[in-house]
Design a protein around this nucleic acid. Sequence first.
RNA 1: GGUGCCAUCGCCAAGUGGUAAGGCCGCAGCCUGCAAAGCUGCUAUCCCCAGUUCAAAUCUGGGUGGCACCUCCA
Length: 466
Amino acid sequence: MVLFDSVKKEKREFIPQQEGVATLYVCGPTVYDDAHLGHAKSALVFDLLRRVLEANGYDVTYARNITDIDDKIIKKAQEQNKDIKEITDFYTAAFHKEMEAIGVSRPDIEPKATESLEAMYALIQNLIDKGYAYATDDGDVYFDTSKDSEYLSLSKRVQDDEDKQERVESSTLKKNQADFALWKSVKDNSVVFESPFGKGRPGWHLECSAMIEKHLAKEGSAFAVDIHGGGADLLFPHHENEAAQTRCATNHALAAYWIHNGFVNIDGEKMSKSLGNSFFLKDALKEYDGEVLRFYLLSTHYRSNFNFNTQDLLSAKKRLDKLYRLKKRLFGLAHNDEKTEFQAKLLEALSDDMNISTALALIDEMISTANETLDTAGKHKLLKRETLSNLAYIEKLLGFGVKNPFEYFQWGVESATKEQIDTLIEKRNDAKKEKNFELSDTLRDEILKFGVQLMDTPQGTFWEKV
RNA sequence: GGUGCCAUCGCCAAGUGGUAAGGCCGCAGCCUGCAAAGCUGCUAUCCCCAGUUCAAAUCUGGGUGGCACCUCCA
């Protein structure tokens, strides 16, 4: 398969360091607030990447961290007069619950910063020993960017001297403007950790390097992980700094492939907390089925910026509906794991840097063909078997169509309402049997008032929420 | 200001040298008691200009218009 490497800026054939094995590390959330749609997009993209890697036969180890040490967490804890852990546990649990709702399975490893402090200390000490880091008089430890000749090689950024000089005057005790904190000394009573470098907190960039080193890096390999992923904004400075730390502290580079997903905007507006229009996943989940959100957020290529809006979401839902209607047509029939040409093509499309558009087009065509054949030759057994196995393949590879199709179409409808609808449908069917179409149409109008749609099929009358 | 990305049908969106996938919407038809669903058919020459080439949406140069990052951020 090929992946677009956002550092080399080209599609590259994916060749893992160890044949048949792929390691993937993705920057996870800082658990100080609810997950927004951007977190959802990122998690979905890498969930898909993992699935595609697995479908290509790789034994994947996927790690995504939880940042549970951070100034914003501390601030929130102080504001709400709560314990840090209370905050982080709460948002971690919420994150897991919401990810599950959009079909994102848990990573194999989910390291927390608070559980990786020893690895961080070791990394800092290592950098100090090798002369890549220095402590300041006020107790901070900084990474010395001037010592790393490859610094900025990831983001291809150019140091701006004028800019640098301007800021130096108002700066701290850093040697270079670009130097970043590995350890921040903390003097007040807020959360502190006892380290060999004094009381304080680790720098954000350090966490990922340390966790990767602890959980994924193998002795003697050229790269700590095969693939490192995250949101597009993380390339600089976060990943740049991570890479510098790892490069200088160990004898391997951080990652062989870098994958960055595009951003989510809302109705054309940048989603950011400071602007106050952030869209929380938990709110979206109140209005829409998690799988619809999954389908919609994944329906555009992962590197494109994504403009979230209701119109497009509903358009995407209609597309997913078609998949579920086909499932409904074939409901209850057993399938086997038959290999089909469709499946091969689908995997081929997704193996090309996760070309979801081509994949969805293939799915649409498969659905049309299946429906057409079912219309004209309803008893076509081979086709049914193949279609069922195709649907199962889509479920596994993309996580689309995982629900019971009848429940999918009745999402969000109260059971009392369902009973009312079913009763009216029975009455209408009686009227239809008697060819009393006037009555049956009146009853249908009543049913439609519930915001549902009716469908008369050879298997009976079904309804769907509009 | 620096760096980088993008511009394809009303909307969403693939394709990156050989004469434009798919979805939504729309129109016509088949099916249906009527609908809905499903199916069939129809609808773009790819922001502008110049160039390279037998051949360009796809490469080069210029222009115009969007956007992102450079600060915590998925």
